Computed example of a mutant assay.
Amino acid sequence: MSSVADLRLRMLQRHLGLQAGRDMEAVSSPLTTHVLDTASGLPAQGLCLQLSRLEDHGQQWTELKKSYTNSDGRCPGLLPPGQMKAGTYKLFFDTEGYWGKRGQESFYPYVEVVFTITNETHKFHVPLLLSPWSYTTYRGS
């Protein structure tokens, strides 16, 4: 591959939240998140998060994935294609751990975003804008 093609591939991987050499299946993940540290104006790298689904039997949360945000504040491959089904999901963000690593006190020890998926053929994006004293989330595209 030429150096121009290599550069284009690396730029595409960065845009999609992928790291060089990672499996490209993350591109088609039906559920994505992007965490931005609004206090620094940078992506929130290294923030621990967990994805869970509420199961009908006993109303118990079942953990589907535990991961960390990458250098772009994203978590590629959060939910593999074919694993999405209609139901209630939760993204748990360990904000206390994130701010603690930076020597920063924070008001919220964690953020839980609970949302409902009614059509498993759609894509869902759950952004989180984060500061030590506030957070905002919304359904992105």
Rank of each mutant, 00 (worst) to 15 (best):
T33K: 05
Y108D: 02
A44V: 09
L12G: 05
T33H: 05
G41N: 06
D37H: 03
R74V: 12
G87S: 12
R102I: 04
E120K: 03
D6I: 00
T121K: 04
H57A: 15
T136F: 00
Y135L: 07
R139K: 11
H57Q: 15
V126T: 07
T33E: 01
L51H: 05
G77Q: 06
L16G: 05
H15F: 12
L49S: 04
E25V: 08
C48M: 07
G97K: 07
T32P: 02
G58P: 07
R14Y: 07
E63H: 10
L79Y: 14
A39F: 10
F115L: 02
R139S: 13
G97S: 12
L129P: 00
H125A: 15
A5K: 00
R74W: 00
Y68E: 14
E96W: 10
G73F: 05
V27S: 11
T69D: 13
V4C: 00
P76C: 04
P76Y: 02
S71T: 14
E120Y: 15
K90G: 04
L78I: 08
L16R: 13
Q59L: 15
G140W: 05
F92Q: 11
K123T: 14
S141A: 11
K123S: 14
T69H: 11
H125N: 09
S67K: 00
G140N: 06
R8H: 09
T118E: 15
R74N: 14
S134E: 02
T88D: 13
G87H: 12
P30M: 01
E120Q: 10
H34M: 12
F92I: 04
Y98G: 08
P43N: 13
F115A: 02
Y135V: 02
G58E: 10
S28N: 13
S67L: 02
P80F: 00
N119K: 02
N70F: 05
L64N: 05
T88Y: 14
R139T: 04
V27Q: 13
N119H: 11
Q83L: 10
L9Q: 13
L31C: 07
F92R: 14
E55N: 14
H15T: 15
